[in-house]
């Protein structure tokens, strides 16, 4: 034990030196980082997205980061430029946040764009609500194995304002059998249809093929 004493004292001195050096390194880095933050990120030229990302995530404390660049010029309506420029305007959240320099990708060549010619092929959106006549249009009755589906579409100023179901299958609800074994912090009830007016409807999504078919025929008649 006693033999170790002097060694320990020397190590204290060494530690102090280490602390001073570390402090100097940290301070220098802080000054460098501040300087980098203040300088225009564009001067970095071909900064790799990930490096830039870490810089942005330091700048942004919140979960949601939305680049301040004006989206209008970048988000051009044609599919090609949208696909390429959208990352710029992509509002990003999460651990790897995008960056201000990534927000102007048109200035710097992006490896992804060149490595991936398929993006250059414009992909038409499934159905964009434009070029439709105003009015109400009813789609064909489409068969789903669980029943028939038919929708009515309302168009105002060339845009879809409402989609209604005219026919939808049956009610499969069974008599509710309330389970008394619920966990203490949970409650239970039988589901019941409500009639209140709502602004928005959420929940189970409308992805059935029959729904799409009926809607498509309604939109087709809105076009012709």
């Amino acid at each position: 034990m006693s033999k170790n004493q002097p060694v320990k004292k020397r190590s204290y001195a060494a530690m102090m030196r280490k602390y001073l050096i570390s402090a100097f390194v940290v301070a220098s880095f802080a000054v460098y980082a501040l300087n980098e933050n203040n300088s225009n990120p564009n001067t970095a030229g071909g900064v790799a997205p990930l490096q830039a990302s870490t810089q942005a995530s330091r700048q942004a404390p919140a979960a949601t980061i939305y680049p301040t660049t004006a989206p209008e010029p970048a988000l051009a309506p044609d599919a090609t430029s949208t696909a390429q420029s959208a990352p710029a305007n992509t509002a990003l959240i999460g651990p790897v946040a995008p960056t201000k320099s990534a927000a102007q990708p048109t200035d710097a060549p992006q490896p992804t764009d060149t490595a991936a010619p398929p993006t250059d092929t414009p992909v038409p959106p499934a159905a964009v609500a434009s070029g439709y006549k105003d009015g109400q249009f009813t789609g064909d009755v489409a068969d789903a194995y669980y029943g028939a589906v038919q929708v009515k579409v309302a168009i105002q100023k060339g845009k879809i304002v409402n989609v209604q179901f005219l026919d939808y299958p049956h009610d499969r609800r069974r008599s509710a059998d309330i389970n008394s074994q619920a966990m203490p912090w949970l409650q239970q009830e039988a589901v019941q249809a409500q009639s209140a007016q709502v602004d928005i409807i959420g929940g189970a999504t409308l992805t059935s093929q029959a729904f799409i078919e009926s809607l498509q025929t309604a939109l087709n008649s809105a076009k012709s």
């Binding site: 928005i200 409807i201 189970a204």
Partner: peptide, 18 residues
Amino acid sequence: KWRVGIRNPFNMREIVKV
């Protein structure tokens, strides 16, 4: 406040909660 209806998974034309 915005009123949100939760769609009935048994019947898409209904909501079961507001």
